[in-house]
Design a protein around this nucleic acid. Structure first.
Lengths: 244, 244
DNA sequence: CGGGCGGTATAACCTGAGTTATGTAAAACC
DNA sequence: GGTTTTACATAACTCAGGTTATACCGCCCG
């Protein structure tokens, strides 16, 4: 596997130029890719924290089980994303992480990660950038949960996915695969699965979002971003850089 | 000002031992403290990102104004907290930051921050730890917004503040100053100010939380953490380390 | 000393989303 | 090919929390 193909390298490159030395270090950190099937648990809440994963193919989610039987999904991971940075300073995991689809992940041990800081300040600050970006995505999600209606929440989330997918694959048109059941969407958005269904029905009738099985079609992306009050529209270049 | 008194040094020390050299660097980064009055805007959404602040005395919040006139508070900052890490990888600010009370802050320029990465890998990884911790606090807030009732949201937040204050001042008993109006609390929790008032009334009648002006009294902290379904109770050591 | 003002309380009414229940259709299993 | 399972749709009913309105209290300021 050459540097060019490495999922970690390509993720890191989003945040600025890397030297050949940096790429070397990254490629070395990355053990051989690991094939995982749908439903695989990468780790559970309470497990010891001793690695990160970079996800090369497939989708994953992190979530917390509530003591009343419900759960809250904290994050959705797409190809290219780094999983587990949030646990960096803790001895054990604070959330579960499951694969939603089959896929390929790369393990990155904590030991070697801290060596990385010693070898290259550039890589260290890139890691901080990635962490800062995660935080900003979370913040967006926070606004979404706090101050929006179900209609806005759902269309905002769908649109976020659309934009994030486009970021890693410029080629997608206004259709894409979204391997999330209505129950998972409910657990992401803090709604009930029933209400997700209702809301999809409404959005379909208005011609905003079509969904068949896991396939999503957005006939008019621009209009959805308005319905969703998507920030990057109305906002600063800073916000734009979050997604593009 | 010696190292011992520096607000940045004490914040960083929470995450592990620092060498004398590290402390030297931190102390140097920190220009003279800046006195700010209540209501001061540290920065606005869209401003250029060229520094961080460490807050040495007083309270601050970051928030985003929604286009429908409401706003969502993203974060509450107490003495010892670092403000602005979330913008690290962006050219401009993604949120407003205001002082809620008068206070003292220390400016830390971005230029010197990146030099810091070069000088000490220890400091770099500490910064990542701080960012990871912020992310985890956000995640808690996300769960709070997504899957809890107003009663739980409010008592959870009050209890979080209690625990965070205790972390920086072991001395506080079960009373403390909380300089947040009911409107601000509403903007934090995604509720209406009216409903915050109602909920406080309920909690008062049950003898869980007393509030007079900005003074909060928790007659039985343990019981509140149960009502609030506070995670660090039922959970892992990892979670505990978030607050203690 | 009186008037304005920001913060808070309480009540009446309304609505968005949860809950429960039932039906259906497509996958998956044997 | 039939049965079981899983995902989704739709309806009826409930309730938490929003909205609007009005009143109170302490405070600053002239």
């Amino acid at each position: 596997m050459t540097h060019r193909e490495s999922c970690i390298v390509s993720q890191f490159s989003h945040y600025g130029e890397l030297s050949d030395g940096d790429m070397e270090i990254l490629a070395e950190l990355e053990k051989e890719p690991l094939r995982v099937s749908a439903g695989t648990t990468l780790w559970k809440e309470g497990d010891e924290t001793n690695d990160l994963y970079a996800i090369s193919q497939g989708w994953a989610i992190s979530y917390r089980d509530m003591n009343d039987g419900t759960r809250q999904v904290l994050d959705v991971y797409l190809p290219g994303d780094v999983i587990g940075l949030a646990d960096f300073s803790f001895a054990c995991r604070l959330a579960n992480v499951n694969m939603l689809t089959s896929g390929v992940v790369c393990r990155l041990s904590m030991d070697r990660l801290s060596n990385m800081f010693k070898s290259s300040s550039r890589l260290g600050s890139t890691l901080l950038s990635i962490s800062a970006r995660n935080q900003t995505l979370l913040t967006e999600r926070l606004v979404n949960l706090g101050r929006r209606t179900a209609r806005e929440k759902l269309s905002h989330f769908i649109f976020e996915m659309y934009v994030r997918l486009k970021r890693i694959d410029r080629g997608i048109g206004n259709q894409f695969e979204l391997p999330l059941s209505q129950q998972v969407l409910a657990d992401i958005l803090g709604l009930s699965a029933v209400h997700i269904s209702r809301t999809f029905s409404d959005l379909r009738e208005e011609g905003l979002i079509y969904r068949h099985r896991n396939r999503i079609e957005l006939p008019d992306p621009e209009r959805i971003s308005q319905v969703a009050r998507f920030s990057a529209n109305s906002m600063s270049d800073g916000m734009r850089r979050l997604y593009y």
